[in-house]
Design a protein around this nucleic acid. Structure first.
Lengths: 233, 233
DNA sequence: CGAATAGTGTCTCTGAGACATTATAGG
DNA sequence: CCTATAATGTCTCAGAGACACTATTCG
């Protein structure tokens, strides 16, 4: 027995998307933020008609922070606080994982883009305070709500890190085991044991040695690995 | 540089919610489905204006499958296939975990409600085919899309089971370790080792012995436990 | 050869599975 | 005293941390 009013005219929502373009820069988790009115916000925009969610994420990234996301992941959806005007609205948060080199070009091209280091303490499932600052260490003011989103994103990554391949999305196509370990340490915020980390990664069978080696180092060059194409799907 | 048309009139979406009322019945994962037109669907409805997401979930459950959910969890959001009419719409899927006894009353009260056993094979992250049938073993026809949602729900539960307390939401307030193990085995679809399971659970510190014992069994009664109130938040 | 890092061998410790043994209820 | 299940002790094995040692590149 539906209410006749809502049945005749179901409530309409404006649907926004917010994206967290995230990477590991200098062994620290970092995101791209857009500067607006002295504050810093995640890139975002409105979902168009007939547009897929991931397509919208790509469009918004292209317009505000043109990075190549190696992994897109939906985080969660929430209703926005009513904005006075009264139009109901909803936001869907996405995480976009990018290799570190992917941040340089957009930072040069878009003056409003800012690189921010993120630190999220381990506070169980609930999560503690999220700290965002410039690589220099100056704290940044975040738009209301974005700190919470960043915290959820970091916790999601931590949870998925060692049973899924999300870590690889933060690295270039060829990488050394040390780089992979740096990514894991940055996300987890913990130092890991080198031999144990190597064993675990190689035993998973996700990696393939290329036979090539790092160049440019003044010490023994590390072997380059790539993710192994999974056979059979 | 926003497009003037969409900026003036941002696209409106109708937002639906679908809920998976899930429990473990007779050591098997089970859900409540609504029968409609020879098919079976998850309970669902439209999000009202100014309504919170969890409030909407509770309202929809109350109307279609009145259970007491001990744990609500947002699963994911997707855009619906355009329904001819052209109105854009979006669905948010939720999981509602219920203690097994909570299914009896709504099944009696609502004729359209059906209890269905769910089986989701372990097929990595991608997931394999989802099988839904009556407790008797007869397969049920699901509305398009709902099988995928059920699969995601089961995989989410499997992932969270042993680092979070979700398992407790599927049990009454007081329960035996055997019941807890049955819940874990049902969700994971695997037999677990009894001494190891006991040790792990007790070591986590989430449990508290009540000193009371099971009644009615014709053998040694098991001790009843409850979840320990977490101190300090 | 020295510096710096890659990569490996080995010992130990912890946590889980396997299995057997003891404990306790009803009939 | 028999049966069924609870609860626990112990052995073994696998995975991870700690640590030291070897390997390789540049200057």
């Amino acid at each position: 027995m539906p209410d006749p009013i809502t049945a005749a005219a179901p409530v309409s929502y404006t649907v926004s998307i917010e994206v967290i373009p995230m990477s590991i820069v200098d062994a620290v988790p970092a995101v791209l933020l857009v500067e607006r009115d002295q504050q810093h916000a995640l890139p975002g925009g409105v979902l168009h008609a007939g547009e897929g969610l991931e397509a919208a994420v790509q469009r918004i990234l292209g317009a505000q922070a043109p990075v190549t996301a190696a992994h897109l992941e939906q985080l969660y959806t929430f209703v926005d606080a009513p904005a006075g005007g009264g139009a109901a609205s909803l936001t869907i948060a996405y995480v976009a994982l990018v290799a570190a080199e992917g941040f340089a070009a957009p930072l040069k091209a878009h003056a409003a883009l800012v690189l921010a280091d993120v630190s999220v303490p381990w506070a169980g499932e609930a999560g503690g305070p999220v700290d965002v600052c410039t690589p220099g260490g100056e704290p940044l003011a975040l738009v209301a709500g974005d700190a919470e989103i960043l915290g959820q994103a970091m916790r999601r990554l931590r949870g998925k890190l060692d049973y899924s391949g999300v870590g690889f999305a933060l690295l270039p196509e060829r990488f050394t085991l040390r780089q992979l370990q740096d990514v894991h340490e940055a996300i987890l915020g913990v130092r890991l044991n080198k031999p144990a980390f190597r064993r675990r990664m190689l035993d998973k069978g996700w990696l393939e040695a290329t036979g090539e080696r790092e160049t440019g180092a003044s010490f023994r060059p590390a072997e380059l690995y790539r993710t192994r194409p999974v056979k059979g799907g």
